[in-house]
Design a protein around this nucleic acid. Structure first.
Lengths: 108, 108
DNA sequence: TTTCAATATCGTAATATTGCAATATGAAAA
DNA sequence: TTTTCATATTGCAATATTACGATATTGAAA
């Protein structure tokens, strides 16, 4: 069907899946890592950095933004995108928690 | 197109995207969290735990397994699935690294 | 060996995603 | 005001994903 039955899962499960989904594309991973690697926050050249057409990049940026992973502020003619700290923090803590639980278990 | 242009991205970007994609579904998040919550490693009842049909669950398990997030060993008639520590560890470290870089930057 | 229980695979319908050309928008420069 | 540059939106084709009924498969019990 292609449609995810979100209504039968908890809000937490749906939210986690949505955030991870926003990152689950090589272009979007590349965008996040590029934003981290650039000194300044001048981010208009993401399009030049990526091997994709401008509309495609714009679409990926939109997805990252609506998932809360990046934020963009208008800077005159161009836009300044950067990674949202709190989103990354939540992801980090999520996997840290799982990691701890695994250390306790040691099953297989 | 629906087809991701993996050939134009680095192997690292593709790999990260693939692992995250495997987790980017509420059912698969639910499976991982269920495996963590269960004391023993008797995991045949994932199907009963999830509000999805058996073939659907089986498909999700397959995706998690082929992404290296869970591993399954045959236990007589049923199968024992559990979360793979090293996969979670890598994800944890990935977000820890990003988090550190963000602390240094403090841009927007 | 037959049967049963647990899981996997196949086939397929409905929907989502990806990518881009064409086009629109919006702000600054000329 | 016109032009130009940066970015967003629209529309659409190709492909991927999700879900499940039907049907294998496989090992254990009877």
């Amino acid at each position: 069907m292609g449609i995810t039955k979100t209504d039968v899962f908890t809000e937490h499960h749906n939210k986690m899946a949505a955030v991870l989904k926003a990152l689950a594309h090589p272009a979007r991973i590349a965008i996040v890592e590029y934003l981290l690697s650039v000194d300044a926050c001048i981010c208009g050249d993401i399009v030049n950095e990526l091997p994709l057409a401008q509309p495609t990049v714009s679409q990926h940026l939109k997805e990252l933004k609506s998932a809360g992973i990046i934020k963009g502020s208008i800077e005159g003619k161009s836009i300044c995108y950067c990674v949202d700290e709190s989103a990354i923090n939540e992801l980090m803590q999520y996997f840290q928690t799982i990691n701890q639980k695994l250390n306790i278990k040691k099953c297989c």
